[in-house]
Simulated scan of single mutants.
Amino acid sequence: MLLITCPVTRTDELVADRRIRSVTSHPTHLAMAVECPACGSVHVYRTGRRWEEARRRVAESGTARAATAAATAASARAAHELTRA
C-alpha cells in the first residue's frame, strides 16, 4: 500500500500495490506511475536523493534571481528619486 496525494483533488489517498502502472529508474530519480483512486487518472511520483538535490538547486537559483531582481528594482527606484530631487 502507498499513501499518495492526488494533485487534482489535493487529498491523501491510500493506494493498493496493484494500482502501480510502471516504475522507471532514471539517473537522478525513480519515477512511479500510479493510478489514482480519487480522480481515476495516472500520476507520476518521483523520488530520490539526487532528484531532491536538483530540485533544491533550482529553487535556490530562483530565489537568488528574485533577490537580484528586487535589488535592481530598488536601485532603479532610488536612482529615479535622485533624478527627481
Rank of each mutant, 00 (worst) to 15 (best):
M1H: 06
L2Y: 12
L2W: 07
L3P: 01
L3I: 15
I4D: 02
C6R: 00
V8H: 09
V8N: 11
V8M: 05
T9E: 09
R10D: 10
R10N: 14
D12M: 02
D12G: 01
D12H: 00
D12W: 00
L14G: 03
D17P: 06
D17R: 10
R18V: 12
R18M: 09
R19D: 14
R19S: 15
I20A: 05
R21H: 11
S22K: 07
S22H: 06
V23P: 02
V23E: 10
V23G: 04
T24Y: 00
S25C: 01
H26C: 00
H26W: 05
P27I: 02
P27C: 04
P27M: 00
T28W: 01
T28M: 06
A31D: 05
A31N: 01
A31P: 04
M32C: 12
A33I: 01
A33M: 04
A33T: 01
A33L: 11
A33Q: 10
A33R: 11
E35H: 11
C36T: 06
C36N: 07
P37V: 08
P37F: 05
P37L: 09
A38V: 06
A38Q: 03
A38I: 01
S41L: 08
S41D: 10
S41W: 06
V42H: 07
V44L: 08
Y45G: 08
T47K: 07
T47C: 08
T47P: 04
R50N: 12
R50V: 07
A54D: 12
R55A: 15
R55C: 14
R56M: 13
V58H: 11
V58G: 10
A59W: 05
E60S: 12
S61A: 12
S61Q: 15
T63L: 10
T63R: 15
T63S: 13
A64E: 09
A64S: 09
A64W: 03
R65S: 08
R65V: 00
R65M: 04
A67H: 05
A67R: 11
T68V: 07
A70Y: 00
A70H: 02
A70D: 11
A71Y: 05
T72E: 13
A73V: 06
A73C: 05
A74C: 13
A74W: 09
A74Q: 13
A76K: 13
A76R: 14
A76V: 14
R77I: 04
A78N: 11
A79V: 04
H80Y: 10
E81D: 08
R84M: 10
R84T: 08
A85F: 03
A85C: 08
